[in-house]
């Protein structure tokens, strides 16, 4: 029993990521027929980044849906999408990035490829703010002004990898319509893949606007990693081992992966504080 518990502590997050990726893309026949799912569940958004044009996608992408809603009627607030993102954010914050995002899983697996790695630095910390610029320009401004899903159209590597490539490969009609935009998107996807091999979660840290949205909720989310301040000695072992550009555990860059728990010499880091366990405030 102890071995099982230890195994789950070590690999539980990976299992959660794998199960999540399969659940989001459970429309297996879509990959065989080259067609996307058209059921009612496509009106429900999943928390993580998962292109709804993926042949396997059984649900909608929150980022694509937000841009679609903004582009459809620029002067009407997309209440359903704002409520959905707020719900995901207040419940989990960036824990979604660490546990419930298939593209986060892909990035982590790419990083396991044995290549020289770029360590985090003040430069990567500065670059981490680029995702907020992408959020404002590509997710909000372009859909409102140009009535097009800016991030999906010009950047999203998840859309190219999960949807663009499979659908184009399986559909001759789509192959005949390939132009400069497809070439650009494949280029962006290739750069992101290469970057993730040498830089931990490069897309997540520097480009992902969904992570940018959820980062606002990290200070107030119901669930997430916590530090017991009474036990913490400020040794910063947690920050030194963290692959993200965090300055403290649980800040806006923290994806709540929990890897820092293993290196804390005081056992001060957990998913629940003592106050939470006792139910007192």
């Amino acid at each position: 029993m102890g071995d099982l518990r230890e195994h789950m502590v070590k690999f539980g997050r990976r299992y959660t990521q794998l199960i999540t990726a399969v659940l989001y893309n459970c429309h297996i026949t879509g990959f065989v027929r080259g067609r996307i799912y058209k059921g009612d569940s496509k009106g429900i958004c999943v928390p993580g980044l998962n292109c709804y044009s993926c042949p396997g996608a059984a649900f909608a992408c929150p980022l694509g849906s937000l841009q679609g809603a903004l582009a459809k009627t620029a002067y009407k607030l997309p209440l359903y999408m704002l409520g959905t993102l707020l719900l995901f954010g207040i419940l989990f914050g960036r824990m979604i990035c660490g546990f419930l995002c298939p593209f986060g899983l892909i990035q982590e697996l790419l990083h396991k490829i044995p290549l020289p790695k770029i360590k985090k630095s003040p430069v990567t910390r500065a670059l981490s703010f680029l995702k907020y610029v992408i959020l404002i320009v590509f997710v909000v401004a372009i859909p409102v002004i140009r009535l097009a899903p800016g991030f999906c159209k010009y950047i999203c590597p998840a859309g190219t990898l999960e949807a663009g490539l499979p659908l184009v490969l399986m559909n001759e009609q789509l192959q005949s319509r390939i132009g400069w935009l497809f070439s650009w998107k494949v280029f962006v996807m290739a750069v992101c893949i290469l970057a993730c091999m040498v830089c931990y979660r490069a897309f997540c840290r520097f480009l992902c606007p969904l992570g940018a949205i959820y980062s606002f909720f990290n200070p107030v989310a119901f669930f997430g990693i916590r530090v017991d301040e009474k036990k913490c000695t400020g040794c910063n072992a947690c920050i030194r081992m963290c692959g993200m550009d965090t300055k403290r555990v649980g800040d806006h860059e923290c994806i709540h992966c929990g890897e820092c728990r293993r290196v804390c010499p005081e056992g001060a880091i957990s998913y629940f504080t003592k106050e939470d366990k006792n139910g007192t405030i």
């Binding site: 044009s53 999906c152 159209k153 949807a163 998107k185």
Partner: peptide, 9 residues
């Protein structure tokens, strides 16, 4: 199918 998402435009 979101043609913009898959790079067709």
């Amino acid at each position: 199918i979101c043609l913009e998402c898959i790079g067709i435009g």
